[in-house]
Simulated assay, not measured.
Amino acid sequence: MSTWPDTRILDLLGIDVPIIQAPMAGATTPAMVIAANQAGALGSMPAAALSTEQLREALATIRQGSTRPINVNFFCHQPPLVDDERDRQWKHLLEPYYRELGADFDAPTPVSNRAPFDDAACQVVEAFRPEVVSFHFGLPEKALLDRVKATGAKVLSSATTVEEAVWLEQQGCDAIIAMGLEAGGHRGIFLSDDLNTQIGLMALVPQIVDAVSVPVIAAGGIGDARGIVAAFALGASAVQMGTAYLFTPEANVSASHHYALRHAQASETALTNLFTGRPARGIVNRVMRELGAINPLAPAFPRAGGALMPLKAKDEAGFSNLWSGQALRLGKDIGTFELTRELARQTLAKLK
């Protein structure tokens, strides 16, 4: 693959195709990362839902299967203070579902956790030395970020506004992921919690491109070669794609998620805070319809998910998160390697 109109990301990250396979916690597997790498893209392994040992095992598997650059992605949120009263109100709101489905309402509430980047995670980075380390919800504290940079890793992070992009560049990011409102999964928002600040990709990318000097990666609502061409036209140097890779056999998705991805309409996704406490885009299901996709009683991230776990065990389709971006109807049931190569070929053909 050659003759790309902008090679800054290719040169910066050492890849052949300006596509980043998005790190999707729970859904991304080492097999997906390896296949994306083999196709010339940047494979990304999410760490947020893994223990330190699980992350080490995943990275060892990837390193055995590929010698190409990899990206490891971390959340860098601040763990919330425990709010017992809010937790109680939240579970009380869910009580009718417990009674209906036969779940034990009086049993201790399971703990929902997402690990932020810390010293233990940084030690894994120092041991495996991934070529790229990316962050969601801003950046970690300077001492940890300096340690990451000392390994030689290039640092990326997501910006959902121009202000966030400028802040990330000022803190030393090597490239910015411009995350449009169309994107699936958790919003990368971190300078504000006001969802009214969130911008669609078409408006976001050129404004970030104009505001920063580092390369920009477009993410959100890109499902095929037409979207990649449009991203280049807007000034992006590469794209990050997630939902498209959820259709591949390498993706680890539940039966309910698999079905929803293939049958929901593009209009049937929404931002919701029900499943974790932070806004994320997913396919609308029963609990989102009946409680409202954004509910003020949902505990702070990541505690909201605990009380839903017993309900999810009884009715997965109705009470689990079905993350997806708005371009889901462009998804194809082909392998990660084939998808990546097809996207690259079709994009180059359209750019001629």
Results as ranks from 00 to 15, higher is better:
K352C: 01
A159M: 07
R147W: 06
V253W: 06
H257G: 00
L59R: 00
A349Q: 12
S51N: 06
I62M: 01
I334D: 00
A218W: 08
P302N: 13
Q21P: 08
P46R: 01
L328W: 10
N73W: 08
L311N: 14
K312G: 14
T29Q: 09
G188C: 05
L246N: 04
Y98W: 07
A238Y: 07
P215Y: 09
A264C: 14
G180I: 10
R187T: 10
A344P: 11
L145R: 01
R147I: 09
T248L: 01
W4E: 02
D333M: 03
G318H: 06
L274T: 01
A35D: 11
N73A: 03
T248M: 00
G227E: 13
A270H: 12
L191R: 08
L144H: 11
A49L: 13
I15R: 08
G242A: 12
G325F: 11
P96E: 14
A236H: 14
H257S: 04
Y259H: 15
R86A: 10
L330G: 04
G282K: 05
D119F: 09
I15Q: 08
P80A: 02
S134Y: 07
M1P: 15
D174F: 07
Y259L: 12
R8V: 09
G305A: 02
S213I: 00
M288C: 08
L291D: 09
A27T: 14
M179D: 12
L145Y: 02
D6Q: 11
T336I: 01
S213Y: 00
A48Q: 04
P69A: 12
E342S: 15
V148D: 03
S256L: 05
V166I: 13
A313L: 14
V17S: 12
K149E: 09
D106V: 05
V214L: 01
I217V: 14
V155F: 12
A143D: 14
V132S: 09
L271W: 13
A260P: 02
A35G: 06
S256C: 10
L204I: 08
W4Y: 11
L168N: 07
E250K: 02
V216Q: 07
E57S: 11
K332F: 00
S320L: 05
T7E: 15
L55M: 04
S134T: 13
L274V: 02
A211T: 03
L42W: 07
A183C: 15
T160K: 02
K142F: 00
V124L: 04
P296K: 11
A47V: 06
A298F: 10
N285R: 02
G172I: 02
A313P: 05
I283F: 04
V253E: 02
A266L: 06
P69I: 12
L156Q: 03
S51V: 00
T243E: 07
V133M: 03
V148W: 10
V72Q: 05
Y259I: 07
T7A: 12
L330Y: 10
A260H: 07
R147N: 03
D84V: 09
C173T: 14
R289H: 10
I15W: 08
G188N: 05
L59H: 02
E126K: 08
A47S: 15
Q38E: 15
L168D: 05
M202P: 03
L339H: 09
L351K: 06
R262D: 08
D146G: 12
A60W: 09
R56H: 09
D333F: 01
A327D: 15
F75L: 09
D210K: 15
D104E: 13
Q78D: 13
S213H: 13
A153S: 15
A22N: 10
I62Q: 00
Q170T: 05
A121Q: 08
